Each structure stands twice: as structure tokens, then as C-alpha cells.
Simulated scan of single mutants.
Amino acid sequence: MNDAVTRIEGEAAAPRHFKYYDLIMAAFVAILLLSNIIGASKPSYVTLPGGTQWSFGAGVLFFPVSYIIGDVLTEVYGYARARRVIWTGFAALAFMAFMAAVVVALPPAEGWPGQSSYEFVFGNSWRIVAASMVAFWAGEFANSFVLARMKVATGGKHLWTRTIGSTVVGQGLDSLIFYPLAFYGLAGWPPEQLFQVVLSQWAIKTAWEAILTPVTYLVVGTLKRREGAEVFDTDTNFSPFGKSIDADRA
């Protein structure tokens, strides 16, 4: 390990200020909200050889970036700080859902032609909102937990194994929970299409993680050098409801 990087064991270390933690948190929450607003409920497709159409959720093109940032958070700052960011993202999703419900419900000004379009885009049902939040919560915590435990098990070596391995688990849970909870039984979502979308989401998200592994290595390496720290969750409380350490503590 670089002499300029200090190894930090577990949560209960000396107070420390991290320069980039808040910026990474902001990027995570922004991508999370945008991917849920813009792409979550639109199914698209690709045409396979032979003319078969294979369906996938449009949001899959950008949402995995939040998982990559989640990997960076856990790898660089540890599970406890990643837990704090996950709860921040969860709260942001809840507020977004509340704001959308209020704004859509407000009567439009006379002559405004966009109410029906607004309702179609932002008027998600309670099922979609609940499914999105449950899937995000379960997937992100599973992703962070697997990565943190694998980091300790591997002694911090072979970063690619834990970023991809944690994504297989976390994104698998996210896809398996969200689409059936949100769309099963609805018109336009026959079971076979739903099954295709779940598998597509899982496969595409994992592929994105693998493809962007060099970027993950670059970002993780740069942040560790600039923060001067390497966090190992050797004695961390992994409960999602555990007390998250303050952003200025290490």
C-alpha cells in the first residue's frame, strides 16, 4: 500500500475529515433521482438475430452508475459512510414521490394543456413508488455489505471481484424486487415480458459494472490517494439501522 495511504480498521477510528465524501454523496443522490424520474417506467427493446424483440427497462442505461458510485463509497469510505448515503438517497426518493404526488394533484391553471402528459410521466402509482424504494433499499444495502465483507476477505486485493460480485447480488435483488412489485398484473406487462425485463436489467447492470471496471479502478485509486485513507470494515456493525458515523469521522 502507498505510504501516503493510512489503513483504517472498522468504524471506531480517530476523527478525520474527507474532502470528497460530500461530493460523491451528491452525485449518488442526483443520479438516483434522475434515473428514477426519467427512465424507470419505460420499457424498451432490442431486436435479436431472427427478429425477436428482447425487452429491457430504459432506466438501466444510467441507473447502474449509482451502483458504481455506491461501490466507490464503500470501497473508499467504508460501509458505515455508505450506509449514511443510502439512507440519504432513500429520503430523497421519498421526498420526490411526495412532491410528485402533490404537484400532480394540484389543479392546473385554466388553458394549460400539459396536465395529462404530466400525470403520465410523474403520476406514478403507489405500487411503483413503493417498489422503487424497497428495491433500492434492499439492493444498495446488499451491494455495500457484500463489497465490504469481500474487501476484508481479500485483504483489499482484486477490486474487480468485489465490485462485480457485489453488483451481481445487489442488482439482482433490485431487479427481482422492483419490476414484479411495480408491474406484475398490469396491462402492457405480460408475465413473459416482465421476466425478460428482470433478466435484462440484471444482465445489463452487471455488464455495465464489468465494462466500467477500469473507470472504477481509476476513481477508487485517485480518491484513496487524495483522501489518504484505506477503510476496512473489520469490526463494523452491518445492520442497515445501525448508527452511521458522522461524515467528518473515520
Rank of each mutant, 00 (worst) to 15 (best):
P191N: 01
E192M: 14
E192F: 11
E192T: 08
Q193Y: 13
Q193T: 01
L194H: 12
L194T: 04
L194F: 07
F195C: 06
F195L: 14
Q196F: 07
Q196C: 06
Q196P: 11
V197M: 10
V197E: 07
V197D: 03
V198Y: 12
V198R: 09
V198C: 14
L199Q: 10
S200Q: 01
S200N: 03
S200P: 11
Q201E: 08
Q201T: 09
W202C: 05
A203F: 13
A203P: 14
I204Q: 05
K205D: 02
K205Q: 02
T206Q: 02
T206Y: 04
A207F: 11
A207Y: 03
W208A: 01
W208S: 02
W208V: 07
E209H: 00
I211P: 02
I211E: 00
I211K: 05
L212I: 00
L212S: 01
L212D: 01
T213Q: 12
T213R: 05
T213V: 13
T213Y: 14
T213W: 10
P214N: 07
P214L: 03
V215F: 14
V215D: 05
T216V: 12
T216E: 08
T216G: 14
Y217K: 13
Y217T: 06
Y217E: 11
L218S: 09
L218D: 00
L218F: 15
V219H: 11
V219Y: 07
V220I: 12
G221N: 11
G221S: 13
G221M: 14
G221H: 08
T222Q: 09
L223T: 04
K224P: 11
R225Y: 02
R226Q: 07
R226N: 09
E227A: 10
E227Y: 10
A229V: 15
A229S: 15
A229D: 01
A229L: 01
E230L: 10
E230R: 08
V231H: 08
V231Y: 00
F232T: 00
F232Y: 13
F232Q: 05
D233Y: 04
D233P: 14
D233H: 06
T234C: 04
D235S: 10
D235P: 00
D235E: 04
T236K: 01
T236S: 10
T236E: 05
T236F: 03
N237D: 15
N237H: 08
N237W: 03
F238H: 06
F238Q: 09
F238D: 00
S239P: 14
S239H: 14
F241K: 09
F241Y: 13
F241E: 06
G242C: 05
K243Q: 12
K243E: 05
K243M: 11
S244L: 05
S244H: 10
S244G: 12
S244F: 10
I245C: 07
